[in-house]
Structure formats: structure tokens, C-alpha cells
Design a protein around this nucleic acid. Sequence first.
DNA 1: CTTTGACTAAAATATTAAAAAAGTCAGAAA
DNA 2: TTTCTGACTTTTTTAATATTTTAGTCAAAG
Lengths: 204, 204
Amino acid sequence: MIVADKKREQIIEGAIKRFSHFGIGKTTMNDIAEDLSVSKPSLYYYFPDKKSLIVGVIEKVFTDYFDLLKKKYNPDDTVENILFQTIEIRNSFFMKYFMLRISEGLPDIFNDDAMKKKLTALKDSEKVFYAEIFERAQEKGEIKHENMAHIAELYLESLMGLTNMCIMELGKDLLPDKKTVNRMTQKQKDLSSIFTRGLSVNKH
Amino acid sequence: MIVADKKREQIIEGAIKRFSHFGIGKTTMNDIAEDLSVSKPSLYYYFPDKKSLIVGVIEKVFTDYFDLLKKKYNPDDTVENILFQTIEIRNSFFMKYFMLRISEGLPDIFNDDAMKKKLTALKDSEKVFYAEIFERAQEKGEIKHENMAHIAELYLESLMGLTNMCIMELGKDLLPDKKTVNRMTQKQKDLSSIFTRGLSVNKH
DNA sequence: CTTTGACTAAAATATTAAAAAAGTCAGAAA
DNA sequence: TTTCTGACTTTTTTAATATTTTAGTCAAAG
């Protein structure tokens, strides 16, 4: 079983390499198999279909993301700094795995039930993480609000909204360059500063 | 000239009716001509091509939007209430003219130079309007910041970002229903409250 | 339990023909 | 002279089809 799981992981990592370089839509199961020097049926032994492999890839990337978020999370820091830190991590993953954007992959991938379920689960995990940040800041007396889960959702959607605005400014199917991401990051940080101040307990 | 301009306006209004009902892509110059009981060359007498007509339509809709914004704008109100008011107007236009979304129209419309120029000009006008709101609030001593133009841009992009998030949740090519828009409006208002509080001068 | 070569079925892509729409022009009507 | 039109040409979309690519299967071997 250990060995089997190891092979599974290897396949996922091979797939990530292809996906994040060429995109999901331009990567075939044959490509992945050839990269790993195995046959296609071997892939299908570990994953019933391509969608399952994509789900596995997304799962892995998000796990790495959450792990890094938690690793770098310092509860003793100010909310503002914690948010700055998370923005940096968020955007580094955004850039690194930009090609993974699911919408550009298989056309009806959002109609897939397992995919939708997994994605909402991952999104919820992120919301929970941000809610915890805000709740601990409240416990520390930094900020105050009746419904921190609501605040976390609003904050996260605002961040993602700013991200989308920046993507839209880029022409379609164009990779975001360092400069664009920096500008985006700055906007997200500016918003975070105003946001935390807007929730703050103390006079400024 | 007055008469000519009047005819021009009639054409634009006819086009708006078609566009906002069926979308730009599904509306032909013949449709518009037939609606107005004129021949197609008549349309081309007033507009050199379809893109120019689209620009005219967009210009008209934005002008109506700005006019209503300015009409309903009460400088004596609190920033928060002013922003609430503008959000309501913004989203009413968003719903009414949702079908106009340019991206769904002609495929390479964003490559058109006149279109890009017009759109950035209109976006800038909106930014200026919001900047003025924030600046007057600063003059009244409600809020404070070194660069209100920057703040206005950040605020506007955050609002638009939230709008996009709500559109994305809807399945592709699905009209936003009242419920969705209400939820979106609430989020925008919540953000506005936190945002203004984050810029506020006084203790809360 | 894993892996594979050789296969089938489904989907994406390229090709072409037909239809629809954009855009033009000489000349008529106001 | 300004505004408008019927009849036209050119360009773009759409529809139909053939071709290739890719997802997914299976019997059998290591």
C-alpha cells in the first residue's frame, strides 16, 4: 500500500509538471505516461479517469498551499502582518500554478460532481483558515465583529475579486508577469490595511 | 444638425433595446434597421460601422448612469450612505444592461482602438467621480488619506471584483437573478462600511 | 497486484460548403 | 445639398463532414 501510494504521488507530481507548464487542456494522458516512462493503462490503474487525476493534482497543490500558510502563520503577529504574509503566499501559488486554471481545461469540467465537491471543500477550508485568523485577532482584542466567518468570506472574495480584475487586464491567454502580480499584491495589501483598520477596536 | 443628431439618438436607442434584450452578438444591423423601419444604408449614414454604433450605445448608457449618479448625489450625506446610494444605482444599471456585456459580443472587439479608448475614458470618469466623493468626505473631516485618487481606484476595483465573483458563481451565459444581485449588493455594502471605517478619522 | 500492447469509443480538430451578416454604391427622394 | 434606398459585393458565421487525436478498455504477461 505504501508503495502504491508512492506511485500515485509520482503520477500526480508528473501531472503537475505538465499541467503547470502547458495547461490541463494541452496535456494528454499519454504525455504524462511518457514522462514517467510507464504505459497509459498504468495511469488508469491508479486513477479511474483524467478528471480524477486532475482532482488529485488540485488536492495536492492546495495541500501544499495550506501547509505553507500554516507553517508561516505566526499568531503573535498583528492581523495586518498575518494578512500580508498570506497574500504573499497566495500570490506565489497563484503565479506558480497559473496554468492550472481549471476553466481553461476540459470544457465541461465544472459539470463534474466530484470536481465541484472537491473545489467547494477546498474553498471552504481556505475560508475557515481566514476565519480563524480573524477570530484569534479578536481574541487578542485587535479587531471586533459579530460574525467573523462572514467577514472572512467578504475579505477573501474581495481579494479574489482584485485578482480577477488584474487577470482581466491582461489580454486573454497571457501569463501574468512579475510586474502585474506585484501591482496586484500591493492593491490587496492596501485593501487589507484599510480592512483591518475598519474592524479595529482602538482609535488610530 | 439638430435633426441629424435626433435621428442618431433614435438609432442608438433602438440599438440599446435590441442589444439589452438579445445581446450585441445576436443583433444584426438589419434587425435594428427593421425595428426603426429604415434601410440599412441609413444606419451606415450615421455610423460608419457596427463598432461605432456599439461605442455610441455604450457612451449613452454610461452617460445615463453618470447623470443618475450625479442627480442622486447628496454631498451633505455621510460617505457611507453616499456609497450605498451609488452601489444601488450601479447595480440597477448592471442588471438592466447585463446583456450588453461587451466580451460576449463581437470576438475581437477589444482589439478595436476606438472601443478601448472610449472604455478607458468612461472607466476614468467613474474613478474621478468616486475620487470626488472621497475627497469631499475628507474636506468634511469624515475620512483621511494622502491619495484619494488611489483610494477611489482601490475601492472601485474591489466593488467590481465582488461583482465578477458573483457573475462567476452563476453558470456561464445565465442572467443574474434578483436574489443573486441582492446578495452581491449586500456584500458591496458590507465592504463599503468597513472601508469607510478604515479611512475614518474619529474613534468608533 | 502491477503492468503492458493492442484495441475501441469518444472527443477535438481541420476542411469544406452554405448561409447570414457586414458593408458599399449609384442613384432617387426630400 | 442632405438624407435615404434597392440591389449589390465581401466578409464572417454557421453547419456538415471527414480526419485525427485522445480518453478509456481488456485480455494477457511479469
